[in-house]
Amino acid sequence: MAATNGTRAGVIGLGAMGLGMATSLLKAGFTVVGFDPADPAREGATDAGVTTVETTDAVFADADVIVLSLPTAQHVQTVVQSALGANLLAQGQVTKIIIDTSTSEAAISRALSAELSAAGHGFLDAPVSGGPAGAASGQLSVMLGGAAQWVQAAMPALEAMAAKIMHVGPSGAGNVAKLVNNMLVANHMVTTLEALRLGEAAGVHAEEMLKVVNAATGRSAISEIHYPNWVLPRSFDSGFSTGLMRKDLRLARELAAEAGVATPVADLAATLWAEGHSGLKDSDDFMLMGDPEVDRLSAKEKN
């Protein structure tokens, strides 16, 4: 469903994901205003046709639907609270809908949703999957948490950005689904690396092992997409950092602890992903964890 001309969208966070979503909104007929604290990000967005502004509050002032693409739940909270403090989300004003595509925290999403709903505005936790390429092509998958009325109202913007839109429950449910998914990704990276190293050591090259795994029941997105595109070509440039993966794995384990659910495999994966064991810095692309030429699984903790 394309947006009508004049529909106003805002994007806060114009990195690889945010810029891709902004350009997808532009293609769908939205006018788009955006903000990012980094000068190069704002310049890139301006070149792409986004009207950039100097503050997050200016985005809220100019847009009816605001997309957030931020590093943490605390960033999301700060941005929304700033708009509330500036009286940009007061009761009786034109309805605004916030679509938070960050990998955030359910408790914070629920609190923000309740506060905004009381003032007549919508908040959806809407973490995404698909990477920068999916964002730029409007082919993301989005996991939605929030009230049905806000999902329906936000649908034109969501359909501009995503090919798969899954409303999985009330506020916070999207965050839960994304953390569970990324916990699996962290685990799959470790188990796929383990399998390929075993195959190599026993005389079957990684490329041949992947052919078997991907034609059989051991396959996953890691083996089918990530290894062929970023690990075996040794480009290691998926656009998702090791630090973000560590953060998501930590949040998933905290969620499990709150829910009273044991996650022994994820607990072990967290140890293996830690910098002291893997040798990877937070700034490294997370695909480096899967390099079958480097033994990150039996590395010893560094003192």
Results as ranks from 00 to 15, higher is better:
residue 66 I to W: 06
residue 96 K to F: 00
residue 163 A to W: 12
residue 236 F to D: 01
residue 103 T to K: 14
residue 274 A to G: 04
residue 220 S to Q: 09
residue 209 M to Q: 07
residue 84 L to H: 08
residue 223 S to L: 04
residue 287 M to I: 06
residue 293 E to P: 15
residue 156 P to Q: 00
residue 64 D to T: 02
residue 140 L to H: 06
residue 168 V to Y: 06
residue 185 V to N: 12
residue 201 A to E: 05
residue 300 K to R: 09
residue 159 E to W: 06
residue 5 N to C: 14
residue 53 V to C: 00
residue 58 A to W: 08
residue 266 A to R: 13
residue 247 K to N: 02
residue 194 E to W: 03
residue 225 I to V: 13
residue 170 P to E: 14
residue 132 P to V: 09
residue 124 L to T: 04
residue 121 H to W: 15
residue 157 A to C: 08
residue 281 K to V: 12
residue 195 A to T: 07
residue 202 A to G: 07
residue 186 A to F: 13
residue 88 L to S: 00
residue 12 I to Y: 11
residue 178 K to M: 01
residue 147 A to E: 14
residue 149 Q to W: 04
residue 115 E to D: 15
residue 232 L to S: 00
residue 121 H to D: 13
residue 203 G to Q: 06
residue 88 L to T: 00
residue 52 T to Q: 05
residue 183 M to P: 12
residue 86 A to R: 01
residue 61 A to S: 08
residue 198 L to Q: 07
residue 192 T to S: 10
residue 169 G to T: 06
residue 85 G to V: 09
residue 179 L to I: 00
residue 272 L to H: 05
residue 257 A to N: 12
residue 233 P to V: 11
residue 127 P to T: 02
residue 153 A to M: 03
residue 275 E to K: 10
residue 275 E to C: 09
residue 243 G to R: 03
residue 76 V to H: 11
residue 94 V to G: 15
residue 250 R to C: 13
residue 134 G to K: 07
residue 30 F to R: 12
residue 2 A to N: 15
residue 196 L to E: 03
residue 281 K to S: 14
residue 113 S to V: 04
residue 160 A to K: 01
residue 50 V to T: 14
residue 131 G to Y: 00
residue 206 A to G: 09
residue 167 H to L: 02
residue 24 S to G: 10
residue 60 F to S: 09
residue 100 D to F: 04
residue 10 G to H: 02
residue 235 S to K: 11
residue 157 A to I: 09
residue 68 L to D: 01
residue 91 Q to G: 15
residue 140 L to E: 04
residue 195 A to G: 10
residue 203 G to E: 02
residue 122 G to T: 08
residue 211 K to Q: 15
residue 12 I to W: 14
residue 79 V to H: 10
residue 297 L to M: 05
residue 78 T to L: 11
residue 144 L to Q: 06
residue 233 P to N: 07
residue 200 E to T: 12
residue 207 E to M: 03
residue 38 A to M: 07
residue 186 A to C: 13
residue 189 M to E: 02
residue 142 V to A: 07
residue 174 G to R: 01
residue 230 W to S: 10
residue 135 A to T: 15
residue 101 T to W: 08
residue 168 V to I: 11
residue 268 L to W: 13
residue 43 E to S: 05
residue 138 G to C: 00
residue 94 V to Q: 11
residue 126 A to M: 08
residue 63 A to P: 11
residue 81 Q to W: 15
residue 247 K to E: 01
residue 301 E to R: 11
residue 138 G to Q: 00
residue 262 A to G: 02
residue 260 G to A: 01
residue 210 L to E: 02
residue 292 P to Q: 07
residue 21 M to D: 06
